[in-house]
């Protein structure tokens, strides 16, 4: 099993009241799945994604990633998982505005210890694969939203992680760019990557193979999409 949640809770203290962002989630994700986590805003889907992405830790319950109990790992080991096993694609792209597209894509490789020409070549290769081979030295502000998101995908792919974690990847894009991004994700899935998509949009979610509906921190529905 790639990802396994066993009654995971995430509880935030807001003054005197405790908010259950995740309220006993039990979930398993297999290698190679294309899964969409669907829910309205405030449902806890972002919290779920943060925990899956090892950016945050559960308050209670166990999260097992590739047979490793995440709560037993230290900061450096978590950083390594984020670097090698998970590629993040954010709604707001989260590119570093001072760096060029190429440099942005190089970042995870840098932290992964790849050096010099090997790093540069790998970054160019991934940028080419998302169709931005001619935009290597553009800064994010010089690119359209769709292009920025493609840079972000290239960045997520650069260390060749098995999992792509996409948080509302089309949320800030027009329909056409959004469709392009979804096509890329589908293609990646076709190449064997596990894609975890977070969205509130049921039309986007329906392009995945499996939909997990989440509401008030609980899974309310877990269905296979019949395409």
């Amino acid at each position: 099993m790639l990802i396994s949640f066993d009654s995971v809770f995430k509880i935030y203290k807001m003054g005197d009241t405790a908010v259950h962002a995740l309220d006993g989630i039990t979930l398993e994700i297999e290698k190679g799945e294309f899964i969409a986590i669907v829910g309205p805003s405030g449902s806890g889907k972002s919290t779920l994604m943060n925990i899956i992405g090892c950016l945050d830790t559960p308050t209670e319950g166990t999260y097992t990633f590739e047979d490793k109990d995440i709560s037993k790992l230290n900061d450096n080991q978590l950083a390594l998982i984020r670097n090698r096993h998970i590629g993040f694609v954010f709604q707001s792209f989260n590119l570093l505005s001072k760096l060029t597209a190429l440099e942005n894509v190089e970042l995870p490789l840098t932290y992964g210890g790849k050096k010099g020409l090997a790093r540069r070549n790998r970054a160019m290769e991934t940028l080419n694969s998302v169709g931005l081979g001619d935009r290597l030295h553009h800064r994010p502000t010089e690119l359209s939203g769709g292009q920025q998101q493609r840079v972000a995908i290239a960045r997520a792919l650069s260390t060749d992680p098995p999992i792509i974690l996409a948080d509302e990847p089309t949320g800030n894009l027009d329909t056409r760019s959004g469709r392009e991004i979804m096509e890329i994700l589908k293609e990646l899935h076709g190449n064997g990557k596990t894609i975890i998509l977070i969205t509130h949009d049921i039309n986007i979610a329906n392009q995945a193979e499996r939909n997990v509906h989440i509401q008030d921190g609980k899974i309310v529905k877990d269905v296979k999409v019949v395409g």
Partner: peptide
């Protein structure tokens, strides 16, 4: 920026 770098695998 620090958050992004950390998400991409930057260690402490």
């Amino acid at each position: 920026e620090i958050g992004i770098r950390k998400a991409l695998g930057a260690r402490k």
